[in-house]
Computed example of a mutant assay.
Amino acid sequence: MKRIIITILYVLGLFYSIMGCSTQEQDTGNSLVIYCPHPLEFINPLVEDFKVQNPGVNVDIIAAGVGELLKRVESEKDNPLGDILWGGSLNTVKPKVDLFENYTSTNEENISAEYKNVEGAITRFTTIPSVLMVNTNLAGNIKIEGYADLLNPALKGKIACADPSASSSSFEHLVNMLFAMGNGNPERGWDYVQRLCANLDGKLLSGSSAVYKGVADGEYTVGLTFEEGGANYVVAGSPVKLVYMKEGVVFKPDGIYIIKNAKNMENAKKFVDYATSYEAQKTINERLNRRSVRNDLPPSDILLSVDKINVINDNEALVEANKQNWLNKFKDIYTGI
């Protein structure tokens, strides 16, 4: 009798062990974990469409700032809990490119030449200019046409700016102002940064969303943000407008990156292919207030035409080589005021 009980328990244990493994494999195979700094208004329509096209795939979104998400990817590199980092400018992610898997999307031939994946692990997804977002009710007669206008004493303590070490859009603004106010030489732009930090009056926000929400909600008169973050409020009818800095605007692509050794690798590749597909990029272009990187879509009807913007370029290699030094210098200036 004892032998029969042991045998039954062994068989039951084996059965549950097999079932457990099967369930675990099924969960893993039909899951996708995305680390993402984008606003939910941008994320949700695309994720829902992806799920319609890939029924059965369970998508989990972990939302946070790019700086925090990159730290998470790095800390989990021996056991990745995420599959994709969806968002983050190239200037922010490139120094950590070894954390990501080489993959070329099935849509690469339709990506514009300047946005090709030449590194292997960096798929360009959208292209985004830095902008100023102005609350028109609060600004009144205060002229805000570019960076120089942010030094107006009337704006002291009324400027929303995120910590560039935590927010990729804020770091892009730091790069933009260094090149714009330094007339192409970023070292000459630091005097402006010092004066701007003084006018922030000790207010530095924790992430990108705090900037555009703060301006839209009337906490701040003007914010340093990215185009889509402000454009959503313009389209919704909020009392805000976008200003493309007269001193010059840098456009930088936003990326989508597969985390190295991701547990759901095939689903991660499917999502990269989806995000760069004609239909997804058409949605981005026409409904979600971002600029496509594909060469077979017309310009957005919503966003200001590029030919009406003073577009300038940074030096990508110089930015990459100096990123940490510039972040340290900004911190020293801000804390020293």
Results as ranks from 00 to 15, higher is better:
residue 274 Y to W: 03
residue 270 K to V: 00
residue 32 L to N: 06
residue 72 R to C: 07
residue 235 V to K: 14
residue 38 H to G: 07
residue 229 G to D: 15
residue 271 F to L: 03
residue 131 V to L: 06
residue 316 E to S: 13
residue 78 D to V: 12
residue 313 N to S: 10
residue 78 D to N: 15
residue 67 G to R: 00
residue 225 T to K: 05
residue 148 A to D: 14
residue 162 A to D: 05
residue 37 P to M: 08
residue 99 L to G: 06
residue 8 I to H: 01
residue 1 M to Q: 13
residue 85 L to C: 05
residue 151 L to T: 05
residue 247 E to Y: 09
residue 337 I to A: 13
residue 82 G to E: 02
residue 108 E to H: 05
residue 177 M to S: 11
residue 14 L to C: 11
residue 84 I to D: 03
residue 189 G to I: 02
residue 111 I to H: 02
residue 323 K to W: 03
residue 47 V to K: 00
residue 210 A to E: 10
residue 176 N to V: 01
residue 334 Y to I: 01
residue 64 A to S: 11
residue 99 L to R: 07
residue 116 K to C: 06
residue 221 T to N: 09
residue 23 T to M: 14
residue 157 G to V: 09
residue 4 I to T: 12
residue 245 M to Q: 15
residue 8 I to L: 06
residue 216 A to L: 03
residue 329 K to R: 15
residue 279 E to H: 12
residue 249 V to R: 01
residue 65 G to C: 01
residue 175 V to I: 08
residue 132 L to W: 03
residue 92 T to W: 10
residue 304 L to N: 10
residue 322 N to V: 04
residue 94 K to A: 12
residue 206 S to D: 13
residue 46 L to V: 01
residue 34 I to Y: 06
residue 61 I to K: 03
residue 126 T to Y: 11
residue 331 K to P: 10
residue 113 A to F: 08
residue 256 I to T: 09
residue 90 L to A: 11
residue 144 I to R: 00
residue 114 E to P: 04
residue 41 E to H: 14
residue 57 V to W: 09
residue 48 E to H: 10
residue 320 E to Y: 13
residue 276 T to Y: 07
residue 333 I to L: 04
